[in-house]
């Protein structure tokens, strides 16, 4: 943060830099030294490399935007980052019209699964993380060890076992096969414990206890509101995690009406191999399914940044 004040790079041509090398009377030797070392050259290199890196990150997404505006012929016929005949709305209506609007059914399913996991799964995680932080009980270390074990086992390693168990109970190909697993978020518990210890002061809870509030009431009326930013972060991460999940729904669901958009689009991709006219639909569908997440990420920057920071604290 303080770097922002130190960094003001010379915005002028190199020749002028020397004249202005001593703007604040030598009180900050650091800045002088930097400009003497050729601040312009280093600013050019550093920012040039940053722009290159960002181009690698952004261009593929930009390609998706351009490609979604083209029909099949232009997709193969025009250069990638130019506009062909503007066919975006035709592509969108093709996406909407396919199989009686099944795309929006898929989007709706994704929203349902992801929101359920985010809100209820988030609450479950926050309650557990809060308990690990605020309550003393025997075997706390062991129980938390289970949480960490859950963090360390990769998701995909448990998907087939879940499927095998779910088929015993006959709940494969039902929403429950998705809704139950998405509630389990061990990393959320880990994050919630960090948030609870930094957001909820023990003194506040002690004061509430003296005033006669039970632990459940003080959680819902004090702890949870204080941890709200943390709750939103955990929910956001879980929402994205469920929205992105591919293997679980692929394995669990056969009924097209129950699929989330990730699996749905991959089915269209399969169609597009023998039938290229499906390709614009795959691309436009991909774009439509990405937009909600892009918007969420841009609007909720503060929260994912805080989640990444808290997660890397050991």
């Amino acid at each position: 943060m303080s770097t922002e004040t130190v960094s003001i790079p010379p915005r002028h041509v190199p020749g002028v830099v020397r004249q202005r090398k001593d703007p604040d009377g030598g009180r900050r030797p650091g800045r002088n030294r930097m400009s003497r070392e050729g601040g312009f050259a280093s600013a050019f290199t550093v920012n040039g490399l940053l722009i290159l890196g960002c181009a690698y990150m952004v261009l593929p997404v930009l390609w998706l935007f351009f490609a979604a505006t083209k029909d099949t012929a232009d997709l193969y016929g025009t250069s990638a980052y130019s506009l062909g005949r503007f066919a975006l709305f035709e592509n969108i209506s093709a996406v909407i019209g396919q199989d009686g609007g099944i795309f929006f059914r898929w989007m709706g399913n994704s929203v349902l699964y992801a929101a359920f996991g985010a809100v209820l799964g988030g609450l479950i995680s926050v309650m557990a993380g809060y308990a690990f932080d605020k309550f003393q009980f025997r075997g706390k270390k062991t129980w938390f060890g289970f949480v960490l074990l859950g963090v360390l086992i990769p998701n995909t390693a448990t998907v087939l076992p879940m499927y095998l168990l779910a088929s015993v109970f006959g709940i494969t190909n039902t929403v429950w096969a998705i809704l139950i697993p998405v509630l389990c978020n061990p990393f959320g518990v880990y994050l919630a414990r960090v948030y609870s210890s930094s957001y909820v002061p023990d003194e506040t809870l002690e004061a509430a206890r003296v005033d006669g509030a039970g632990p459940v009431r003080s959680f819902f009326s004090l702890g949870l509101p204080m941890m709200m930013p943390g709750f939103i972060t955990i929910a956001l991460f879980q929402f994205v995690g469920v929205w992105n999940n591919f293997m679980l729904p692929l394995v669990m669901l056969q009924d097209q009406q129950l699929l989330p958009v990730s699996v749905g689009i991959s089915i269209w991709q399969g169609y597009s191999v023998p039938q290229p006219e499906f390709t614009p639909m795959v691309i436009t569908g991909s774009l439509l399914s990405v937009i909600p997440l892009l918007v969420a990420f841009i609007l909720l920057q503060r929260f994912w940044k805080s989640g990444l920071t808290a997660g890397s604290v050991k």
């Binding site: 991959s266 892009l294 990420f297």
Partner: peptide, 10 residues
């Protein structure tokens, strides 16, 4: 922010 499936597709 781009789901894995879509990233792989792109």
């Amino acid at each position: 922010a781009v789901p894995g499936v879509i990233a792989a597709l792109i």
